[in-house]
Amino acid sequence: MASEEATGGLQIHPMDQFIVKPLFGGDTIHWYTPTNVTLWMALAVLCVVLLLVIGTRGRAIVPSRVQSVAELAYGFVYKMVEDVAGKDGLKYFPYIMTLFMFILFANFLGLVPMSFTTTSHIAVTATMALAVFFAVTILGIVKHGVGFLSLFWISSAPLVLRPILAIIEVISYFVRPVSHSIRLAGNMMAGHAVIKVFAGFAGVLGVGAIFPLAAITAVYALETLVSFIQAYVFAILTCVYLRDALHPHH
């Protein structure tokens, strides 16, 4: 975490926590190699299954604590999809619910000491963002055909400005997966790097590490909030993109 080199300078390596490593020896990583990334993604999936499948299997009228949490998450995402994408978007609720819960648990698991934050990697977040991008684009084309292009034509703007605005809209549309993925990965990486820096100072200072420990506590609390907010932002942006695909004229 932190060390004193021969030069006498303090060495802190906050980015080492994001290194992808094989689980079973060696340094070579192939596409089929189990890594710390795949392990913690699998654990996130397992947590989702435990909460939404195992935790609700009783379907009790008076729910247990686990069932109450599952129902709260279900109602929260359902209401979000309905409010943003409309009634037509509810048929795609399972997909958005899956995205939200996976990202939420991946973020929270990343806060466990000695764990790995899978959502801090662009490879993970970009895969999800591209899946959303292609899904809503194909949906829009299938449902509306050429009419889907009306999404880029601002009919309420003055006629002379419409071609310029159309170019801007096309560029912003194809930038969506970039911003969608970088926002999540960047926020998770930045927060964990800050915690690692303060932890390095605390390890060096020893008993005098009151300020670094207080800073770690504050940043950790903030990261807990950010973990939920980033899952929410990813899901609600997916709802916005879905709404555009379903109702491009709006």
Rank of each mutant, 00 (worst) to 15 (best):
V240I: 15
S172I: 05
S181D: 05
Y220W: 07
S172Q: 13
F201I: 13
I236G: 10
T217I: 02
L184C: 05
I182M: 09
A193N: 04
R243M: 05
I167V: 14
I210T: 12
S156N: 08
E169K: 03
A245S: 06
V207I: 12
R162M: 05
F234K: 11
L165S: 09
A157M: 08
F134W: 09
A235T: 13
E223N: 15
G140I: 02
L159K: 10
V178A: 07
G203Y: 12
P158K: 11
G203N: 15
L242H: 03
G145P: 01
L213Q: 04
Q230E: 15
G200P: 13
F152E: 06
V240D: 07
E169V: 00
I141M: 02
G203V: 09
G186P: 00
L159W: 08
S181V: 02
H180Q: 09
P158T: 06
T217G: 07
A157Y: 06
F133R: 00
V240Q: 13
K143C: 00
I168M: 12
L184V: 10
T238R: 11
T238S: 15
A202P: 08
H192R: 07
L225D: 11
P212F: 06
F152N: 01
R162K: 07
A166K: 01
V146G: 07
P163S: 06
T137G: 03
F201N: 11
A190I: 04
